[in-house]
Nucleic acid binder design. Structure first.
Length: 784
DNA sequence: CAGTGAGCGAGCTTCCGCTTGACTT
């Protein structure tokens, strides 16, 4: 056993470093943070200078006790967590938890996992930097205060279980505001004119008119005019140009590019990258740095020189443009540049290929281009000219390997033009005027949202993917597939002296993988923006970050920074809790023709609903939940009234009634106490008995090899089932694990009851609560 | 998972960042 214990954050890193350091060193991992604010209640003593209350979470107990044992056997401990605010705090928590003296414990850092970098770090240890630790504590405490004081306001004023926070709420705001912008957008139609011209030698090329016409009459008049025009080439302009490669990948640019080129979601990209990292194939995948190690630059250079030639190589050092970047790691790159293909499966291989190409290209020469612009005019066209644009690659440089993708949907057409001479006359092959519609700003994709958040300095590489999951799981945003609709557009074409007119159709509005705000997302956002504009401000994070920097530099204390935030924030919370109206997004849809009562839509305790009648009526109002796909913002009176036809009986089957209803998770068929979801392609309003029976039978078939035994004497029914992970007992909504030494086939009802009595198995729920849960079935009748 | 929807009230929910397996039915 060595005398030195080195603690790093990641186990994969530990393995590599142990090889570099030799026999006298044991390298262990802390698996990230080992301590955090207590998970229940605030965990911050507001009245005691905001003193944090920390605990080692249950899932970290094993790691900590292992580290404690190793510390005992060591004479020197080296805290080697990352060199940033969080890393410094991890080092400090380790020192505190493991009982190390911060005055003597070594703290080392390195930005790249190479032998020279590690050995150099070991030569010059320092101590834990308390100012940096305090900056992290301020960050942590601020986020806790904001999140844990804002969320309960939402529970009270909108709906239980909701959440708000410095990062997630701004992410939702971006999506909501983009959606509003799109709703308010009115598309404008113009006529775009493109001419195809022919040279004497028969070569054709395209040129676009430098003007778009407002309407069909103008476009027609122009084409008419072209009939009798002799076209000739005006100015021909040739300009050299260059294009440079993009910087190596950071987490955010990798997520964007994998989304554009490979269609991966943000979390998919991260999990594939994690796999590659664990296999030692790429460097760390959560980074905001575009920096490459000297070693990597050199081996990229060798690789480029041998594969493409020396003139393709160009050593480049990139620097980050992001203000908030902490750069504790390298850019994401292949560990070994000479390994062009790697990965355990197709998806990993494609991601690795992308990383390899991006890294290599970043060390390659710029591409040399020649841009040509030629104008084409005619005597009676006035100021209107056709412009032909061409681009020729003179030297491909890095383009040989890689070209960064683009978010823009319509890319300007750039072709190679034939040789053009000023004054040369041309015959038009055809001149087309096509009706085009201006487009609204695009909705965010996961990746473009990450890009925007990074620009605003909000969130960190390790949180981009989880943040998206959070706002989806809370029901604030969703990623529906929108079919789109057909739209007509006019197409006019001048060919051989004749003008053709045609009405064509195209699909518009189809969306896939785009983020849409939900009803709840909008209501929550509007509430937060109205009452807590300071935290919802896009610059809030940037402002507090600069204060964290001041703490890190020792210019202000962390407690005073938090104090100055909290002294306004907390009264704001109290004021809103006290005085703000309940927010429900309520809208009056119209009058129900049957009862003459008003019909409303709003967010209720269980989600979006429609309501007939007033809350203070003598007769109670009727309620119905919305279907998935319906929004309180857009539902019509007719659609709302349809919803009151549920739940309804559609006939009998096997001596049981078949009912159709709408539950919290969508429409269902209920038969013989069993639920079957109605498929998306079926409309619950029109579904017939035959189809419902089909669904019931399909469900039975699917469940066939799932059931081992059913005890229907109980209420709710007790069932023994085969699950994906072995047999279990189900009663009502609860599942119970069957002990391994029990044969599920021979279980009797008594055995099952015994297992059930031992309590539900699984996370979260503490033992069976003694209190009989008051079922609130009777609530309907109980009032007055 | 699921058939509700006010209010009464107990007791629950919730943040961001750093890391991977444990867990899932």
């Amino acid at each position: 056993m060595g005398k030195n214990l080195v603690i790093v954050e990641s186990p994969a890193k530990a393995k590599t470093i142990e090889k570099f350091l030799g026999k006298d060193f044991v390298v262990e991992s802390s698996f990230g943070h080992i301590r955090d604010l207590v998970s229940k209640d605030m965990g911050v003593q507001v009245d005691n200078q905001f003193t944090p209350v920390y605990e080692v979470p249950a899932e970290k107990k094993d790691v900590v006790s292992k580290l404690k044992k190793l510390v005992k056997k060591s004479t020197q401990v080296w805290l080697a967590s990352d060199e940033d605010r969080e890393g410094e705090a991890i080092a400090w928590h380790l020192a505190e938890t493991l009982g190390l003296d911060v005055k003597t414990t070594h703290r080392i850092v390195f930005h790249e996992i190479t032998k020279p970098a590690i050995l150099k770090a070991v030569e010059s240890p320092r101590r834990v930097n308390q100012d940096l630790v305090d900056a992290q504590q301020a960050r942590r405490v601020l986020d806790r205060l904001v999140g844990f004081e804002l969320s309960p306001v939402l529970w009270k004023k909108i709906k239980p279980g909701l959440s708000a926070g410095r990062v997630q709420s701004v992410a939702v705001r971006l999506i909501v505001e983009r959606e509003r912008e799109i709703q308010n957008f009115t598309s404008k139609a113009t006529y775009r004119v493109v001419g195809t011209f022919v040279k004497d030698n028969g070569k054709k090329f395209n040129a676009e008119l430098n003007h778009r016409f407002e309407n069909k009459e103008e476009a027609l008049a122009f084409l008419e005019n072209c009939k009798s025009t002799d076209f000739s080439i005006g100015k021909v302009d040739k300009r050299p140009g260059t294009r440079n490669p993009a910087a190596p990948f950071t987490t955010s640019t990798l997520q964007q590019e994998a989304s554009r080129k490979l269609g991966y979601s943000v979390s998919q990209t991260m999990s594939l990258a994690q796999r590659l990292y664990e296999a030692g194939l790429i460097t760390y995948m959560r980074t905001d740095s575009v920096n490459l190690s000297g070693l990597a630059i050199n081996s990229a250079k060798d690789e480029i020189t041998s594969q493409y030639g020396e003139n393709y190589s160009k050593v480049r050092n990139f620097s980050t443009k992001n203000k908030g970047a902490q750069e504790a790691h390298e850019a994401i790159r292949p560990t070994y540049m000479d390994r062009q293909e790697a990965g355990a499966d197709r998806n990993q291989q494609r991601l690795y290929d992308l990383i390899w190409k991006r890294t290599v290209a970043s060390q390659m020469a710029e591409a040399k281009l020649e841009h040509t612009t030629a104008t084409i005019s005619g005597p009676n066209l006035g100021d209107h000219k056709f412009v032909a644009k061409g681009e020729v690659i003179v030297f491909d440089g890095f383009l040989k390997v890689y070209l960064e993708g683009t978010d823009e949907e319509e890319i300007e057409e750039k072709n190679a033009l034939p040789a053009l001479v000023q004054g040369e006359t041309l015959a038009p092959h055809s001149i087309d005027a096509t009706q085009r519609f201006s487009k609204h700003a695009p909705r965010f994709t996961e990746a473009s949202l990450v890009k925007k958040l990074e620009e605003l300095g909000i969130g960190r590489p390790s949180t981009y993917a989880p943040t998206i999951s959070t706002i989806v799981n809370r029901g604030y945003v969703e990623k529906p597939v929108r079919e789109g609709v057909m739209r007509e557009y006019q197409f006019l074409s001048l060919q051989k002296g004749e003008i053709l007119e045609e009405t064509k159709t195209e699909k518009t509005g189809a969306e896939k993988g785009k983020l849409f705000p939900t009803d709840i997302g909008m209501v929550v956002n509007d509430f937060l923006v109205e009452h807590f504009n300071r935290v919802l401000d896009y610059n809030f994070t940037a402002k507090v970050e600069s204060e964290f920097d001041e703490i890190a530099q020792g210019q202000i204390t962390w407690n005073s920074m938090i104090e100055s935030f909290y002294k306004d924030f907390h009264p704001n919370i109290e004021e809103v809790t006290e005085n703000a109206e309940r927010a429900s997004g309520e809208r009056l849809l119209g009058v129900d023709p049957d009862s003459g009562k008003n019909v409303y839509t709003r967010i209720g305790r269980f989600g979006p609903l429609v309501q007939i009648g007033e809350g203070d009526d003598e007769e109670k109002p009727a309620f119905a939940g919305l279907l998935s796909g319906q929004q309180i913002g857009t539902i019509t009176l007719e659609e709302a009234l349809e919803l009151f036809k549920f739940p309804r009986s559609i006939g009998d089957y096997e001596e049981g009634e078949v009912k159709i209803g709408i539950g919290r998770f969508g429409p269902y068929v209920l038969h013989a106490k069993k639920f079957t979801s109605i498929k998306k392609e079926d409309d619950p309003a029109t579904i017939n008995l035959a189809r419902a029976i089909e669904l019931i039978e399909a469900k039975r078939e699917a469940d066939k090899n799932k059931f081992i035994a059913t005890f229907d004497s109980e209420d709710p029914i007790v069932e023994v089932l085969n699950g994906r992970f072995g047999p279990y007992i189900k009663q009502g909504r609860n599942n119970f694990k069957i002990p391994k030494d029990v044969d599920p086939k021979s279980l009797t009802l008594e055995d099952c009851k015994k297992i059930i009595a031992e309590g539900p198995k699984g996370k979260g729920k503490k033992k069976t609560t003694k209190k009989a849960a008051p079922k609130k079935k009777s609530t309907r009748k109980s009032s007055k």
